[in-house]
Design a protein around this nucleic acid. Sequence first.
DNA 1: CTGAAAGCGCTTACAG
DNA 2: CTGAAAGCGCTTACAG
Lengths: 337, 337
Amino acid sequence: MKSNVTMRDIADKLGISSVTVSKALNDKDGVSEELKERIKTLAGEMGYRFNTVAKSMKEGLTYNIGVVIPERFTGPGQSFYLHIYQQISRALEPYGYYGILHILHREDEEQLNLPRIYYDRKVDGFILLGQVSKPYIELVQTMDQPKMFLDFYDEHADIDSVVTDNFYGAYELTNYLIAQGHRDIAYVGNIYSTSSIQDRFLGYYKSLLEHRLPLRNEWVLSDRDDEGSYVEMELPQPLPTAFVCNCDQVAHNLVHKLMGLGYRVPEDCSVVGFDNDVYATLIVPQLTTVGVDIEQMARTAVDSMMKKISHPGSRFGRVLVQGHIVYRDSVQSLERS
Amino acid sequence: MKSNVTMRDIADKLGISSVTVSKALNDKDGVSEELKERIKTLAGEMGYRFNTVAKSMKEGLTYNIGVVIPERFTGPGQSFYLHIYQQISRALEPYGYYGILHILHREDEEQLNLPRIYYDRKVDGFILLGQVSKPYIELVQTMDQPKMFLDFYDEHADIDSVVTDNFYGAYELTNYLIAQGHRDIAYVGNIYSTSSIQDRFLGYYKSLLEHRLPLRNEWVLSDRDDEGSYVEMELPQPLPTAFVCNCDQVAHNLVHKLMGLGYRVPEDCSVVGFDNDVYATLIVPQLTTVGVDIEQMARTAVDSMMKKISHPGSRFGRVLVQGHIVYRDSVQSLERS
DNA sequence: CTGAAAGCGCTTACAG
DNA sequence: CTGAAAGCGCTTACAG
C-alpha cells in the first residue's frame, strides 16, 4: 500500500480528469455508473486513501472536536471523564468526526490560557468536560467556535450544556431512603464546589421538604475544599441513620471511615452514592447509587455539537439526561428492625 | 475574536506580502526585526489564529498521532490504558502534536478492518496500545506509516515496541516473597493470553529457579480464557503461602475470594499484584505490587514515534521501561512467625 | 530584507 | 456525462 496516491494519479491512469475521480469516489452525480465502478476498483488496487486534510482545507472544517478536561479530574483512580471521552469518540464516529483530548493544566486554567487546539485551529468545536472556574468560563465564551459544557453548567454563562439530572436523581434516592424508614439523613458534599454537588444537594433537600423533615446544618458535611481537593471530614454525633453522598468515591471513603470506627454498614448506618462508578462495587457492601448514563450523555452532547456546527448560532440550552437508581447492599430498611 | 483572519488579511493591512507575514509569524529569517514586531502585534490585535490545516497540506503532515486501544481494555473499571493515552497526549504537546484515540471494536479486530483514521489519513503514525490478535498484527504491518506497540510486543512482528519490564518486575517481586520466607508460591494468570502475562510468569519462574524451588503445574492458575475474559478459578489444596498475580485486578479478586472462604490475608496467605492501579489500594490489606511508570512509558513511546516520523525507516526495537516494587500490606513475613 | 510564482490535493461552480 | 479553471491558506524555492 503506497501512501502517496492522489486522485490525479488515478485520473491519469484512466485518461480522465481528477474532477471525475472526485465525483466518483464521493458518490456524487455526474459520472456514469460504469466509469464510477472502474474508478473505484482502480482506487482500491492502487491503495488510494482519502486525503482528509485537503478536503478540510477546502471546506474549512477539521472534522475534529476538542474535548477539554481539567487536569484535576484525571488523576489516578479518576477515570470517569476519561470514560466519557471514550464514549464521545465513539459517538463521533458515524459523523466522520474525531475527538481530540486536551487536558487543561492547572496553570493554564489559573492564568486563563485557552487550549492550544484553539490557537492551532485543530477542531470545529469544543466540549468542556468538567467544571472550570468562573473566569475560565468567561474566557471560553470569547472563543468564536461552537462550544458546550458536559456534566456541568453555569447559570450566568449562556452556553449549551448536557448534564445528568442530578437534582432528580438525588431526590429519588433520598425518597428511597425515607421509604426505607430513615428520618435522620445527612448529605455529604461541599455544596459550593460544583453545580453537580449543589444540585444533588437540592434534590436531597426537596425530598426532605416533601416529607416535612428538617434540614439540619450540622448534617450537611463538606468533603472537599472549594478547589475540589478532598478534606478529612468530621462525623456528627449522634450519627444520622443514613448518608447521601455526592459521589461514589466519597461514599466509598465514608464507608471505610465508618468501619474503621467500628460501625457496621448498613446495619448501623446506611450510605448511598452517586455515579455508579468503580468505587460503588469495590467495597463490601456494594453501594446503592444512581447510575449515570455515560453513553447517552456522550451521544446527546455529540448530536447537539453536530447541529451547532452545521447550523451556526443554534442553541439548545441545558439538556438533562436521566439516571437510574442501582439498588445494592448499602441501605438498611428500618421498617423491619 | 474573528476566526477567519488569514495571513493575507494581515499583509493587506500592512501593505506587504503574505510571504513576509508567514516568515514573521514563524520566526524565520528574511524579515527585519522591526517589521516582524509590527506583524506580530497586528496579528494579535486581529485575533489571528494559525491555520494548521493549510500547513499540514503543504507539508503532508497531520500533526496527529493515532492511539489505538482494543475495545476489551476499555470497559468500566478498566482505565489503565485510558490513563496511558492521557499521558501520551501530554507527551505529544511539546512536539505540537495531538493524539487521536481510536477504540478498536471487537468486530473490526475479528474482521481485520484497519482503523478509519488510517483510511482518512488523519494521523502521521500509530501507537497500538494493548495486545491485538496475531492476524491483526500482520494487518497492521501492511500500513505504510510509522507504527509501534505499547505495553505489548510480538516476537515475530518486526515492529518497535515499548513495554514495562514485566520479566524483571515479577522476578524481583518473587525474590521479595522468597526473602520473606515463602517457599510455596503460586502464579495466577493465563500464560497463553498476552506477552505481558507470559513474561511476568517467566520472571516468577526465574526467581524459583534461582532459589532451586520447583515449578509446580498445579500452582500456575489460569485467571482468564485466551480472549481475556475472566474465568472463575479453582484454588489448589493445600493452599500455597503466597500468590503472585499477573495484575492488581486479579489480585484484588483473589483476596476477596480468599476472604470469602474464611482465609485471612496476609496472615494465612500472601498476595501480590502488578501495575499499581486503583485495584491495589481499594482493598484492605492494600496490595504490594509493581508500579508501572505510565508517564515514562508514554514519554518513551512518543519520543520514539517522533524520531520515526522525522527519520522514516528508523528502528529502535523493543524498549523496556523499568517499574518499581511498591511495598504495602498484603505480604506476611514467615521468618518471624 | 522583501515578494511573485508555484504548488500541496482536493472541491465547487460553471461550461461544454 | 465529463472537464478546465479557480481557490482553500499556507510555505518553499527563487529572484530582485
